[in-house]
Simulated assay, not measured.
Amino acid sequence: MEAVIRQLKEEEFGVLGDFLYEAIFIPEGVEPPPRDIMEKPELRLYIEDFGSSPHDIAFGAVCGGRIVGAVWCRIMADYGHVDDQTPSLAISLYSEFRGQGIGNQLMRAILNELRSRGCKQVSLAVQKANYAVKLYRSLGFETVSENTEEFIMIKKLTEDI
């Protein structure tokens, strides 16, 4: 099924909570956390009052009239924070829509939008075992730091991708 990639409207920002939960990396054989994990401050900062800053940008993938994936960014002190001028990205898709190139389309849309707004770079944090690391590297993200579980990656926004 073909996805339409477009900026999310303010009234659609509520879906970001669902996609934030979907973005939690669950290794093979591990039980997903309860939904109330979303109440943790370190997760709420990804979505709380989203749209209140000019740096809050979100794109959605729409299939059959339903939003099936989202990528969004804001400047925040999250896991991928590198400085107060660099937005941090989050992306996820419902599981049945993964592996079809939709994530790549979403990433390209938001990276080009950020570049067009004069943003110099964007960051993200990703679990080392997450298959999405391959996507991020293919889009030009480079690891700038890491800990035992995660890579912190940056993409310089010098040209359209």
Rank of each mutant, 00 (worst) to 15 (best):
G103W: 07
G80M: 00
Y136R: 01
R115N: 06
D84L: 13
Q121P: 04
R115V: 03
K40W: 10
F141E: 03
S95V: 12
S95E: 15
E159K: 14
R6G: 10
P34S: 09
A109T: 11
L20G: 01
E31D: 15
C63F: 08
E48S: 09
A109W: 02
D36K: 10
I5M: 06
R6P: 15
L89E: 02
K156F: 05
H55W: 12
G60E: 10
L106F: 02
H81V: 06
Q85D: 12
S88I: 00
E22R: 07
V71R: 02
E11I: 11
K156D: 10
R74H: 04
C119S: 10
Q105V: 08
D56W: 03
K155M: 05
A61L: 09
M76Q: 14
E2L: 14
V133H: 04
F59L: 11
P34H: 15
S95Y: 03
E11Q: 06
N130T: 10
D160P: 08
G14Y: 15
G103A: 01
V15E: 08
S95D: 12
V15W: 06
R6D: 15
C63I: 11
D84W: 05
I75G: 07
R44F: 02
V144N: 03
T158D: 12
I5Q: 02
V15R: 07
